[in-house]
Design a protein around this nucleic acid. Structure first.
Lengths: 71, 71
DNA sequence: TTTCCATGTAAAGCCTCCTTCACATATGAG
DNA sequence: CTCATATGTGAAGGAGGCTTTACATGGAAA
């Protein structure tokens, strides 16, 4: 599979909280594989999932996901 | 088709600039039908397209797309 | 070593995003 | 009326997001 269109800091944010991918998956109500695929850059989350992630970490989508057009 | 997971203000922003759906589609490099489908709530944009839309209008994704968990 | 947990990944299947082509309606200009 | 523009939608197909099942690796602990 090709690279995702957007980079992200999900792994860092998750690690800061001491959560496993499984923990995060349950909080987001998605599968562990989905969390892993997003962290490893295999694909981007849907917009609703991106919102859910941002809400969980209490920040803006732009603080977690980084458009390639910006550094 | 069911309703999209996220509401948006795309139609308003586009109208403020006097752009047709076709105009906006060309600026975003997507089809006119995609713009229409997003405006009419048939589906959500992908995360990369949401970024592109936000960048075009010079604001945050959260300023255009509204998670249903918030009013 | 054995066991357990965390992570990475593959396959198959379903649903969503986005495309093109096509058609319908409405509105305004001439 | 005729013509052009703007919008809404349907169908079919390709690419991508997400699921479950399953297997592999690596590290920590006993």
């Amino acid at each position: 599979m090709a690279h995702a269109g957007v980079n992200n800091h999900l792994r860092t944010l998750r690690a800061e909280r001491g959560w496993s991918q499984q923990d995060l998956a349950q909080l987001l109500e998605v599968s562990r594989q989905s969390v892993n695929a997003i962290e490893t850059g295999r694909y981007d989350p849907s917009l609703p999932l991106a919102f859910k992630i941002a809400e969980l970490f209490g920040c803006a989508i732009e603080d977690i996901f980084v458009s390639p057009s910006k550094g």
